[in-house]
């Protein structure tokens, strides 16, 4: 289908993609490319905003002043990253309000990982180390995505996120050097967050509906399975170094492929969580809705004030 009936514009577009020339907002692009980007960037933005909630859950209970400040700064970065991404999405002609409304109505998706609860302080370590680690794996690849504004947002985000994973791993290291209770707390967090972190890369390539087209358009640069494998290869030695056990009895180094073999992922759990039946889906959406509702009169007030003032200036 792609070879025949290609218009001149489409050929020009495809030629740019092949030569790794970035697509910019006002350039012609196939409607399906625009839609794919809007879907992916908005999901990404929503994930940043919803992602503030599980970690925000521990800011007021952070164990000391240093950890409190670090966690505040980290969660704040996520609000910033959400904004960078919404801005990139808006260059494609989609409004942030509409996108936000889709999030609140449950229509839009976001990363399934944020529907898991943070039950102990160690979870903050696990989220920073594993969840941010998985996200960074994905995001570094996206710095070379074909759409200019998305790529630029990702470059900025990756630069800022470099401290996120480190602070999480530092929490885990400190816990593993601590008391028996602290080590158990860390292992428990590891047990709960390991598999959901692997699910963050999305369905396996064989089952992913969007993957191939996104790869052809260079929206995605690596497949879900490739990224998942890189993440496992990077994380296993980190866990071993500090004495954490990976909760996977099938995990084994495979010399031939130069990576770890690992046990089956529970895709039924993934499907349930992504379709709204995870442990915290309802709470996450409710929190976002409440924040949005609480902000309604504030946004109106600021708009009304701006109008009054420009009317005054004009007269």
């Amino acid at each position: 289908m792609k070879e025949i009936n290609m218009t001149a514009l489409e050929q020009l577009f495809q030629a740019k993609i092949e030569k790794d020339i970035k697509i910019e907002p006002k350039d012609w692009m196939p409607e399906a490319y625009r839609k794919t980007l809007i879907r992916q960037i908005s999901q990404h933005a929503h994930s940043e905003i919803i992602g503030m909630l599980p970690e925000g859950n521990w800011i007021t209970r952070a164990p000391n002043l240093r950890r409190k400040a670090v966690l505040l700064a980290k969660v704040q970065d996520e609000a910033g990253h959400g904004q960078y991404l919404y801005s990139a999405m808006e260059t494609l002609g989609e409004s942030r309000d509409k996108s936000m409304a889709d999030l609140i109505s449950g229509k839009a998706k976001y990363s399934s990982i944020f529907n898991y609860p943070t039950l102990s302080w160690a979870d903050i370590g696990a989220v920073g180390w594993l969840v941010d680690g998985a996200a960074i794996m994905n995001q570094v690849a996206l710095c070379r995505t074909s759409y200019g504004p998305y790529a630029r947002a990702m470059v900025r985000i990756c630069k800022e996120e470099s401290f996120h994973q480190r602070q999480g791993f530092e929490i885990m290291c400190t816990l593993m050097k601590g008391s028996k209770e602290q080590r158990e707390m860390a292992q428990d967090a590891m047990n709960r967050f390991w598999w959901p972190s692997l699910m963050m890369f999305g369905p396996s390539d064989a089952d992913s509906t969007h993957s191939q087209q996104s790869i052809d358009w260079k929206v995605k640069r690596y497949t879900n399975d490739e990224l998942r494998q890189s993440f496992i290869n990077a994380s296993v030695p980190q866990a071993e170094l500090i004495g954490l056990t990976i909760p996977d009895k099938d995990l084994k180094w495979n010399e031939a492929k130069g990576g770890y073999d690992f046990g089956p992922i529970d895709w039924e759990e993934f499907r349930q969580v992504i379709s709204g039946n995870g442990p915290c889906n309802a709470e996450r959406i409710a929190a976002r809705k409440q924040a949005d509702d609480n902000g309604q009169w504030v946004r109106e007030a600021a708009s009304a004030f701006a109008e009054k003032r420009s009317a005054k200036k004009a007269s």
Binding site: I49, M52, L53, E55, G56, I59, T60, L65, K68, A69, L72, A73, V75, Q76, A79, G80, G82, Q83, Y86, A287, Q290, A291, N294, G295, V298, R299
Partner: peptide, 27 residues
């Protein structure tokens, strides 16, 4: 910091968190 993630507007979430960070730093 109770408001972090729950601010009425995303822009304001960042602003209030900045203030919280300054205050924790001063403390």
């Amino acid at each position: 910091s109770e408001l972090c993630g729950h601010g009425p507007i995303i822009e304001e979430d960042i602003a209030l968190t900045n203030i919280a960070l300054d205050l924790i730093g001063q403390a």
